[in-house]
Nucleic acid binder design. Structure first.
Lengths: 336, 336
DNA sequence: ATGAAAGCGCTAACAG
DNA sequence: CTGTTAGCGCTTTCAT
């Protein structure tokens, strides 16, 4: 004997399937007699009835499923965020469909289609570029969308860390240690996150009374170790900073490898500050000083936000607080 | 304009929806004229047609969804495996529903129920303990299940790395360097993985003609940095090994922190070997010598296997090759 | 090889 | 409040 359908339940309860459906749907209580409701529910539990999701999805065009787009689960920043999302959604009876875009616009576009075909009720997207036609089209289609950490002008709902404040704290930390020549290795310019962190860097440097020097800023093609390595290497070929703030922890590791390759010590010769405080950053040698973003909270906030959008259409921007974690990679500048 | 349906494609191609369906379904090539197939496919791509899964699921009585249970996405070993699973499944039109058990039996049991209610067509489980009633019940129910890296006696389908061979390579590497006192910090005994690695360690040590010394083996309560730290600390309190093989890379990091805390250098005083070669292990200082398991391949193999089980009921055990990656954390033992 | 038609399980709109 | 009916998009059987 296979799984019971709502027809079976209706027959057992002596009512019409439509009535059984109403009795079983929590949102429609009051549309059936208490007595009927009771009888149907009793029959359902007795038969071990579990509503078939496929039928329900097809009819309601709802799947209780959220598409989650991230650049790459292999980047250690994302797993904690994804966990936050998953747990937040599941507590509300939703599931996450997770997909990696590898920062490829084509792949992102294709994945949006695949997930749309699954009738996702909404999307949480952490992979968007500032100019992103696929996401823009999704927003146009009135699909609920929450952007995470990478924002776009047109979006109405987002969750991000307060990177500007974090960057200021990082710069002030270095200035307080006595640094006067501070470099910044940014991520790719296509991302809003890069812009925010870079603008805050320039602002904080100016506020500290240091000379603005474009030569102290270099762009890594991706938020990855090797690209960070190349970018910082180019920077060191033309300048001699006593400290560098990396666009994120992966780039910071790239800075480490450059210093090691050139026989420079960290923090004695050059201090390094990262961004994100991803897992294991504290176990690097030296332990990385970095701006910690609340990765798990970002995930749960994104989950909560998308659910609110689906329920009431409410949408807002949330900025979550960060904190500077001072470890062993920063110290006073060398005496010249 | 909303999403195109197969009706739209059929109309555009001038054929009946049924024919369009046949032309689009890869399994049914030969049931339509090459010309028809071409025309339908052309119309489909032109319209950007993506089959609606709810309709398909309802009709085929399949959800094209696989439940994936892992201990914790926060452990850097798992993201690459999960990526392999996701990509492997998606290429075949399946999606993964990922859930973290945090190694809690209760949570695992509950998650299995949640995912079963979603009509998953099968499960890929990387969180099973040797004695695991929830997974055992799932196996009993004839649900297709593939176990990953952690095996059980009763399972018929599994994917794992060839840990025994890897462990032998690690031991031989150390013996070749001249080490005669080699320690092993294992993971928890509840996992088959731990057993396999430990048994292979003892075997390889014996095969090298070294004395078996139970005092050189210590168990970490979890595959985590802090537990690895505590376990290795206990071990060093009673023995003075010149090398240690950690149950995995997280435990290896715990060994690093113990050595650092005691003023011992790696590899000059004590060599350390890890297991898994998780991301960033190569960027630790010293770069970790470790047994690399093909994380991505494990994921894709698991995806392939579960799809085969669903399709033909075929099931088998796969053991994937590993390789020792020699980096900077191993060297000759100190001269006494 | 293709067209026609039925139906998977469910719920929303409409009557009564 | 409940029965009736229709149909979501797709695949598959049955004709032709």
């Amino acid at each position: 004997m296979s799984k019971p359908t709502i027809q079976d339940v209706a027959r057992a309860a002596g009512v019409h399937p439509g009535t059984a459906s109403r009795a079983l749907n929590p949102g429609l209580t009051g549309r059936t007699t208490p007595e009927t409701t009771r009888r149907v529910r009793e029959a359902a539990t007795r038969l071990g009835y579990v509503p078939d999701q496929s039928g329900r999805n097809l009819r309601t065009r709802r799947s209780h499923t959220i598409g989650v787009l991230i650049p790459d689960l292999g980047n250690p920043v994302f797993p904690p965020i994804v966990r936050g999302i998953e747990d937040g959604l599941r507590d509300a009876g939703y599931e996450a469909l997770i997909a990696n875009t590898d920062d490829s616009p084509e792949r992102e576009d294709q994945l949006i289609r695949v997930l749309t075909a699954r009738n996702c009720d909404g999307f949480i997207i952490a992979s968007s570029r500032r100019d992103d036609p696929a996401v823009a089209a999704l927003l146009d289609s009135k699909m609920p969308v929450v952007l995470v950490n990478r924002l776009m002008d047109t979006v109405t709902a987002s969750v991000a860390s307060d990177d500007a404040t974090g960057m200021r704290a990082a710069v002030n930390h270095l200035v307080g240690l006595g640094h006067r020549t501070i470099a910044h290795v940014t991520g790719p310019n296509t991302l809003s996150m890069t812009q925010v962190r870079r603008a805050a860097f320039e602002e904080a440097v100016a506020a500290a009374g240091l000379a603005a020097d474009p030569g102290l800023i270099e762009t890594a093609a991706r938020y990855a170790v090797d690209e960070g390595h190349h970018a910082f290497s180019r920077l060191l070929d033309r300048r001699a900073p006593t400290a560098v703030i990396a666009g994120n922890d992966m780039i910071a590791i790239g800075c480490y490898t450059v210093l090691r390759g050139r026989g420079l010590r960290c923090p004695e010769d050059v201090s390094v500050v990262g961004f994100n405080d991803m897992p294991l950053s504290g176990f690097l040698d030296p332990a990385l000083t970095t701006v910690a973003i609340p990765q798990n909270d970002i995930g749960t906030a994104a989950a909560q936000l998308i659910l609110e959008m689906i329920a009431d259409g409410r949408s807002l921007h949330r900025l979550l607080p960060v904190s500077l974690v001072v470890r062993g990679s920063t110290g006073p500048p060398p005496v010249r």
